[in-house]
Design a protein around this nucleic acid. Structure first.
Lengths: 160, 160
DNA sequence: GTGCAATTGACACAACGTCTCATCTGAAAT
DNA sequence: ATTTCAGATGAGACGTTGTGTCAATTGCAC
């Protein structure tokens, strides 16, 4: 029975598409995925992160903390969570895949090179030109990737 | 003496920022890099590619064809060529780094999922919003990454 | 031609991710 | 509550991509 204990938030992701752990688990159950101990642990660990994290970080986390999940399970579960829109897989400044909380739908990020924080923004400047580009080049657009790299205010004040 | 044999194109990269092999070698020499046999072979092989290619592909190429260059040398030389603007390192639809001919300056790509072709385009919709985003979020923008994924016309007609 | 620093490449190593398969377990049926 | 079995796990082998080391080699300036 999802969302039981204190019936927190009620159904569906809250503001900004953020899922709580029970909501994420409910989403998995809805799609027919079993709610196993490793999956609970991984979902909890993933949603606890405040910054973008790599799969390998969670593997390390899982090994020490919570429930001891194997590498394969971590990778598989992250993939599921990403498919469900609980997490998004984006790329950091080096092109390495990292996960952040939230659905990927038209999400783009200001990624700080220093602290790794990924600030999402919803303005999509690509939509405007995608149609024109598609026509001009006879190209059927399926999706796009936009990450803006730089330094956030906090990191600039810390190290000038 | 770059561009000798038939004085192709004359000095500097030709249209669309494409380098010929002699021009690429001249660019390396200008920056103080030695013109070694492996570097010639790798530059030649890299500029011969008509589609984006991975470093590992060139390693395989180099092993069989031209001049037998080691893995380290291929990676190092590609890095140099990218730094000189002879090649750009972009990311394919899976987030894997691939190289394409041409400078990366405000280059963005229409990347075909089927055949891998990367069609460059120069319209930069990011510039328009980058300033506003930077102000709103106190973020100092250093660069960005924009790739549009989909299917090109050729691939659509081939497999409907 | 000589000398030296840049370059090479074989190899070891590391990070990241996939795959397999014997074992285990959630949850539906009873 | 027990049974049952497909779905899930995880240890470990494996593949790929990339980096680091270091003795041997080689461009190129003199």
């Amino acid at each position: 029975m999802p969302g039981s204990t204190t019936d927190r938030q009620n159904a569906g992701p809250g503001k900004a598409g953020a899922y709580s752990v029970p909501q994420a688990l409910a989403a998995m159950a809805d799609r027919g995925f079993r709610l196993t101990a490793p999956r609970r642990a991984i979902a909890t660990a993933a949603l606890r992160q405040e910054r973008p994290f790599t799969a390998e970080q969670l593997v390390a986390d899982a090994a020490t903390g919570d429930g001891e999940s194997g590498r394969s399970t971590v990778y598989r579960t992250l993939e599921i969570l990403a498919a469900l829109g609980v997490l998004s897989r984006i790329l950091d400044a080096s092109g390495r895949p990292v996960y952040v909380a939230g659905a990927p739908v038209h999400r783009h990020h200001l990624v700080c090179d220093a602290c790794g924080t990924a600030l999402p923004f919803n303005v999509c400047p690509v939509a405007d030109i995608a149609d024109a580009l598609a026509r001009e080049n006879d190209f059927e657009v399926r999706g796009h990737l936009l990450e803006i790299f730089g330094t956030c205010g906090d990191c600039r004040t810390e190290s000038p």
